[in-house]
Design a protein around this nucleic acid. Structure first.
Length: 703
DNA sequence: CGGATCCCGGTTTTT
DNA sequence: CCGGGATCCG
């Protein structure tokens, strides 16, 4: 099959795809065919005879890389191309496992996720006696954020504390001490956290001429996606990977930079031409995704943003429904409006998989999740909670980890503290014995406590068995499960559910032949929510944080909680840069929509300490309504009618006899209807009350 | 050692 | 108002 590049790409895309050599910066507006460009670029390079293994595609998630590479393969009628792809972190991991010894990294090393990091910090905090009540020393999460932010932004902890954490000024010295100890602990125990992967990979390229030669010669074409969300370390890495030939293509959109909390610098886009003076700049401005009314909103949202490469998106898709902004009475009403509106779209033949609800923070969807669940809609949720962060999953993983890296003190503690009769002090002794023995198992066998603690004996036997099954981490997981089951049952009353999740872990492990690979992969690309499992993709709606929606699109998009204090988040309101990032976040959300765009917020919301309060619409959407241009339907009956809750429709005209719940009045039974919009409800505690169905946030609790 | 209790503090986003 | 974490007690 011959790919007709000229026909299938617009001139700017074509220019990017067929660029022969030298650095290129592609500034790609939302929906401008950025992914398409990268896919065709890979195919084109392969067609030109470039060895696929010499192409490296760095993306934001592994999923993105896989999808692009499989699309490129399909274009070329191949099953797989053998192009290398993944995240910066996973690529760094691969290179460090190969060449890390050049800079004296311990190999193998274990990768720590955020939870592990916090666990270690917590121990240090205690060891140093910084956990006294009067002290109010920052908690582990805050400390971990400071450390990570410092690495990713390149600011010293002192600077960072005075800039962003000035209330912790008093503790600067102790914080630095904790960090030193944390760093020392990692070195000593062969542990690397996410940030270390970048730091050491960068160091490897910088300090070791030999390794740099090998790596840069191996990868002669480098494509970097989402360049606006790279940090200074990643930008340095890209520069060094460019090597002599400088065949680097960076693709990004400064208006969509939403990861500054992890050090992302959209300025990297501006600086790219400075790092690579020969850079060709290509702009993709035509949008192929959204209707003009949706783009009008997007352009307005971003118009006030002072981003350097300003683009104005245009589209040839005219017409389409007007976006709406809707005020709900309260959170629950907001959920009801969304559910009702989704029902309308489904009636019109829109498939569930073409609909998404997006929000600023993961917990914003809790109420909606309950409501969707009650009504029997399936949904997949992205963002927030991670399978791997569940305590029981971490417990089991810790057993694999000490086997892979005997020095991993953190995992040891985790394992040993589970053994009945073992606490802090015994755990230390047992660990010492295990680490110092000729082998792990022999070390454990030498423990004096072994006879008194039957579960410790069992643990020793477990490790002996695990050592004998090589080549398949799944078998090892199953062995751990046999051992762990009684502990699981003792610790959690929902153990059957947790057991199933653990079995999923065993299934996941089956894809790997080496335990090391399994551990690294699963930490770097944690599996998504378990609800995703065994569900027909077409039948599920998507719920997602905006961060996790990056790069995706849907026919219909709902943005909920567009209220001051929620979006923008209350934590961002006193920093102008953070506020700009929140704006870009909304821009990303809006530009996910192809046809329908609904923005909602509750007029009242619950606020800790203050109870039920009036909210203000998000400053970003308020501008949209005030300017009152036709792109944006004003808040009106008409604008919202599509969203109006109408329980009558859903329930075939009669609610009589049903049990309902009202947030203020509690549970009650519907006694009868009054006209079309009103019902009389007998509330268990308040008696008879007449309610208007258009406004009352009623839920059905029993059919 | 481990469970119970009580108190304060404070909320995001992800590799 | 919930949960992490420090402290207390058997």
């Amino acid at each position: 099959m011959i790919i007709q590049y000229e026909k299938e790409l617009n001139p700017a895309q074509l220019q990017a795809v067929t660029h022969t050599s030298g650095p290129v910066l592609v500034i790609a507006g939302a929906g401008s065919g950025k992914t398409r460009t990268l896919v065709y670029r890979v195919a084109w390079l392969v067609e030109q005879g470039v060895e696929p293994g010499a192409i490296l595609l760095l993306t934001f998630t592994r999923r993105a890389a896989e999808e692009m590479l499989s699309r490129a393969a399909r274009l070329l009628d191949e099953h797989s191309l053998g192009v290398e792809g993944g995240t910066f972190h996973s690529f760094a991991n691969r290179m460090l496992r190969l060449y890390g010894d050049r800079i004296h990294l311990p190999t193998p090393f274990t990768i720590l996720d955020r939870g592990d990091t916090e666990g270690i910090i917590s121990w240090i905090r205690k060891d140093k006696g910084l956990n006294k009540k009067e002290l109010r020393f920052p908690r582990k999460g805050t400390l971990a954020s400071i450390f990570s932010r410092s690495v990713n932004t390149g600011a010293s902890p002192e600077e960072l504390i005075s800039q962003r954490y000035d209330h912790l000024d008093l503790f600067t010295q102790d914080i630095v001490d904790v960090w030193k100890e944390y760093t020392r602990h990692k070195r000593q125990n062969a542990l690397l956290d996410y940030d270390d992967l970048l730091v050491f990979f960068s160091a490897l390229l910088q300090e070791d001429e030999w390794a740099r030669q090998i790596i840069t010669q191996r990868y002669s074409y480098i494509l970097v996606d989402e360049f606006q969300d790279t940090n200074h370390l990643q930008a340095d890495i890209v520069e060094m990977l460019g090597g002599g030939n400088q065949n680097i293509m960076a693709v990004g959109d400064d208006s969509q930079s939403i990861y500054s909390f992890r050090g992302a610098r959209f300025q990297n886009m501006v600086e790219f031409p400075r790092r690579f003076p020969e850079t060709t700049i290509i702009k993709l401005e035509q949008n192929y995704r959204s209707t003009q009314p949706v783009l009008d909103i997007a352009n307005k949202v971003i118009a006030e943003s002072p981003t350097p490469y300003t683009k104005c998106l245009f589209t040839e898709i005219s017409g389409g429904p007007e976006p709406t902004i809707t005020a709900a009475q309260n959170e629950h009403h907001q959920s009801l409006l969304v559910v009702q509106s989704i029902a309308n779209l489904l009636d019109r033949g829109v498939r569930p998989s073409e609909i998404a609800v997006l929000f600023r923070s993961s917990f914003h969807s809790f109420d909606l999740e309950v409501e969707l669940g009650n009504r029997g809609y399936s949904f997949v949720k992205y963002g927030g909670f991670k399978f791997l962060e569940l305590a029981h999953i971490k417990d089991v993983m810790a057993h694999l980890r000490v086997l892979a890296n005997r020095q991993d003190a953190y995992s040891w503690r985790r394992i040993l503290m589970l053994v009945p009769g073992v606490g802090m002090s015994r755990a230390e002794n047992i660990m010492k014995s295990a680490v110092e023995g000729a082998t792990l198992v022999e070390g454990l066998r030498a423990c004096p406590q072994l006879d008194k603690l039957p579960k410790l004996k069992e643990l020793t036997d477990l490790f002996a068995q695990m050592e004998m099954v090589r080549g398949n981490p799944s078998k090892r997981v199953e062995l751990v499960l046999d051992y762990y089951q009684p502990l699981l049952e003792a610790a959690y009353d929902d153990h059957p559910k947790r057991r199933r999740q653990l079995e999923e872990l065993a299934a996941l492990a089956q894809r790997f032949t080496k335990t090391d690979d399994f551990l690294a992969e699963v930490t770097l690309e944690p599996p998504q929510d378990e609800r995703r499992y065994d569900m027909d993709k077409d039948e599920a709606l998507t719920l997602s944080t905006i961060h996790s929606s990056k790069g995706l699109e849907w026919r219909a998009v709902y943005i909920i909680w567009a209220a001051e204090g929620w979006f923008p988040s209350g934590l961002s309101v006193d920093d102008s840069e953070d506020l700009e990032e929140e704006r870009r976040l909304l821009y990303v959300a809006v530009t996910r929509a192809r046809e329908w765009l609904y923005i909602l917020y509750p007029r009242m919301a619950y606020k800790r300490g203050e109870g039920e309060v009036w909210t203000k619409p998000s400053r970003y959407i308020e501008n949209l309504t005030q300017n009152g241009q036709q792109a944006c339907a004003p808040l009106s009956r008409k604008g919202t009618s599509d969203l109006l809750l109408n329980l009558n429709i859903k329930y075939g005209g009669s609610l009589t006899g049903k049990r309902v719940n009202h947030p203020t009045f509690g549970a009650g039974s519907v006694m009868g209807h009054k006209g079309t919009d009103n019902v009389v409800v007998k509330f268990d505690s308040k008696g008879l009350i007449s309610l208007n169905l258009k406004y009352a946030p009623l839920t059905i609790i029993e059919e």
